[in-house]
Computed example of a mutant assay.
Amino acid sequence: MTEIASREIEVAGRPVLAEIVPAYAPASAVAIHTDADHFLSDAARDAVAAGIPASTMRAYTKDWKAFDAWCVSQGRVSMPATSQTMTEYVTHLTTAISARTGKPLGPASIERALAAIRTWHNAADVNPPQTKGARKVLSGYREYLATTHNPAAQTRKAAPAGRDPLRSMLDKIDRSTLAGKRNAALLLLGYATAARVSELSALNIADVTATEDGLLVNIYRRKIKKYTEVAVTYGGGKADTCPVRTVLALIAAMAEKGRTSGPLFVRVDILGNIDTRQMMRKGVAIGDPEGRITAEAAAEVVTRIANTAGLEGRWTGHSLRRGFATEARKAGAQLEKISRHGGWADGSKAMLGYIEEGDKWRDNPVAHL
């Protein structure tokens, strides 16, 4: 048992039993950190890295390597970086020409670079640098881009795949092939579930359950870190725009190829067979041995078909998710219903941004004046 002792205090000059306290202080009451308190094992570091989406980690790695190389060229230390180094680096990024675009980086890309540098410091148990000066430079850069009407001032957004654009894309797909059936199912299921391409590529056949009312799709929502069961109803129009019939047609076609389990969306070779070849990149084995497509490949399907359909704008895998949000709102769906169906976090700024775009005509305040 824990020993206890009474403690007296004086009230109006007279001793009074005030409270009962432990007779001794626990060892943890005195905070003296040792090296053990600051140690982080390799397993813990790997576990932290596993909590960062793979696409984000790739981008952060690229940003960190660029920062480290710039520091070497300038005779500066990349870790721990100083606030002055951060300010100089952001100033450099506002004028340096990107090899990929032939233009300086936009504000969003510079923000990501700052996040990458802070993440790398935190992962190494090093205090990240102060960025107050760097962010003032970035703020001035945003102002300059806006006042000079530079397109980089506008955030690049994926065009929303609403109903009409989606129909145009579906019209360009040859569904007599396995690849065509896969592409049509990817577009319609991505739209109907408001899924990210990373969530679509992760789906297995077992994640899709057919019911008399439609499909129940078990999707792991990466941003909110949990599974959601999404109900997909039969389409009221033609069969070729119905997500339920289209997904079931894909599953049946894969069964004819002997595939009844594993990934729902797979690579397909030029002969129309499921492609399970081991691929190599720079001597490193890549690709899923079961033939699962990557998130990048799923996004490329959306981009390629949109371009084939002659659609204007920037079409990416995110176009399906944006299209669902805007069309659902136009149809009168409640915000919380849209949010829960699409796996958005409560109060998601991204989702509210999509809704605002859909509402700027549907619920325009000028119309009420």
Rank of each mutant, 00 (worst) to 15 (best):
N204T: 05
E143S: 11
T211F: 04
L178C: 01
R196S: 04
R182P: 01
S168V: 06
A202D: 13
T147A: 11
A184W: 00
I205R: 08
V197Q: 13
V126N: 09
V126A: 11
L215P: 01
E229H: 10
Y220W: 13
I173P: 00
S139Q: 08
A202G: 09
Q154H: 15
T211E: 14
K132T: 11
Q130F: 04
T193N: 02
R182Y: 01
A179G: 08
T209P: 00
Y141S: 03
K136W: 06
S176K: 15
A202R: 08
H149R: 11
D174E: 07
L186G: 00
Q130Y: 12
T131G: 00
A210V: 10
D171M: 10
K181P: 05
L166P: 01
H149D: 08
V197E: 12
A146E: 12
L188F: 05
P128W: 05
A206S: 14
K226H: 13
L188A: 04
R142K: 15
R182Q: 05
A195P: 02
R182I: 13
T209G: 02
P151L: 06
N127K: 13
A152P: 00
V208P: 00
D164R: 08
R156A: 15
A206W: 05
G190A: 14
A179D: 05
L138K: 04
P165Y: 08
V208N: 02
V197M: 14
L178F: 02
K157N: 15
D171F: 03
L170H: 03
A210N: 13
V208D: 03
D171Q: 09
R222H: 10
A185E: 04
G180H: 09
T228V: 08
T193C: 15
Y191S: 08
K181D: 04
Y191G: 00
A195W: 00
T211G: 05
N127W: 05
A153L: 09
A146I: 13
H149L: 14
A184L: 03
L187M: 11
A184N: 03
T228D: 14
A146Y: 10
R167F: 10
Y220M: 08
Y220A: 07
R222E: 15
L145C: 07
L138P: 03
V217R: 00
G214E: 04
K225M: 06
D174V: 09
K223A: 11
G190I: 07
A152S: 11
L138D: 04
A146C: 06
E143G: 04
R142I: 08
R175W: 01
T177C: 10
L170R: 06
V137A: 15
A152V: 00
K226D: 14
